[in-house]
Amino acid sequence: MEHLVEVQDLKKSFLTKGGIFGKSSDVKAVDGVDLYLNKGETLGVVGESGCGKTTLGRLVLRLIKPTSGKINFDEVDITNLSERKLLWLRKRTGMVFQDPSASLNPRMNIRSTLKRPLVVHGIKDKNTIQKRIIEMLEKVGLNEDQLERFPHQISGGQQQRVAIARAIMLNPDLVVLDEPTSSLDVSVQAQILNLLLKLQRDLNLTYLFITHDLVVERHVSDRIVVMYCGKILESADTDELLGNTMHPYTVSLFSSTPIPNPHLKSTNRFIVGGEPPSLIHPPRGCRFHPRCPYAEGKCKKVEPKLVEAAKDHFLACHKFEEIDLLTYVKRFWKLMERLN
C-alpha cells in the first residue's frame, strides 16, 4: 500500500522559561517517532495527556517545525519547507480540534468560517463558493438556515460539524482529528463518529485520529500506535494490538479503561501506580520503567528500540519475551468476539 505520510525519527522540543531567573529548559514533547500512514486508512494515536500526541499531529501537518527528523507527505519532503511553499500542503490537509467552541472564530458566522479556506486558496467566484458551501453543509448534516448564525448560537455537536466542514472544504487527503469527540456527550459523539466514518468512505480520506479513549479508538482505527512520554511504545493493527497486547504500559492503559458492559467487569485489573514523568527530565532507559512492575537493571539504563515482535506488531520493551500479561486484556477479546 502507498504511504501518504512517512515520519522518521521525528523530534520536537519546546523551550520553556522557568522561575524568576529565567532558567530555560527543554520540554521534549515528541522524542524520536517513526510512523507511516497508508492512503485511506485511519491511524489511531492513543496516550495520556502530555504524551505528545497532539504535538505529533501538528508536526505531521507542519503547523509547527520539528527540531529534527524527517516528514514526507506524498513523497515530498516537507520537513523544512517555508510557510509560502507549504500552501499546497494546507490545501491537501485539514485539522479538527477537541473543543469546537474554541476553534471557531466567535466573530465569524458559519458562512464566513466556511468561506475562508476557499478565499485563502484563491477561489473568488461567488457562485462556486456558494455552491461549495451548500454542498459541504449538506455533507456534514447541517442546513442552510444555520449559515448566518454565529458559533455561540448553535450546539456543541453542530459546532463540531462546522469545524469538520471547514477541514474538508478543499477536498483534502489527510485530516488530523485531535480528540474530536472528547468534549461531546455520548449521543452526540455517536453522531459525529458516524459522520466521520461516512466522510472517510465517501471522500477517501486518511485520518490521524488522536484520542485517549480506547473504546472509540477501537471502533474507528485500522491501526493504533500507543505513545508515552514522547515515544511510541507499541503499534499494530487494531485487532492485533487488542488481541495480543504486549507492552506493560499498553496493558495498563487497556486495563484502566472502563468498559460500558457490567458483564466484562473485572476485578483482575493491571493498574500501575505513579504518574507520567516530567518531559523536561524524562527517566533514563525505558521511559516507563519507574511505573513498570517488571523493570530491572537493563530497563533503567538502556532505552529499548522499537522492534517487530510479531508480524507488523512493533514494540519497545526489553522484557516482552519474559512477561505475559494477556490475562488482563482478555475482557477486550470478549468485547471483540461479540463484534466480529
Binding site: 455537536g157 455517536a190 477501537r218 487494531t238 463484534l339
Partner: peptide, 24 residues
Amino acid sequence: RGLLRCLPIGYKRKSKLGFIPGTL
C-alpha cells in the same frame, strides 16, 4: 436504550453506530 446504543461497543469496527435523533 438510545444512549446504550450510542456507545461504540457491540459494533463491528467502522460500522454505523446507533444514535438519538435531534438535540437536547
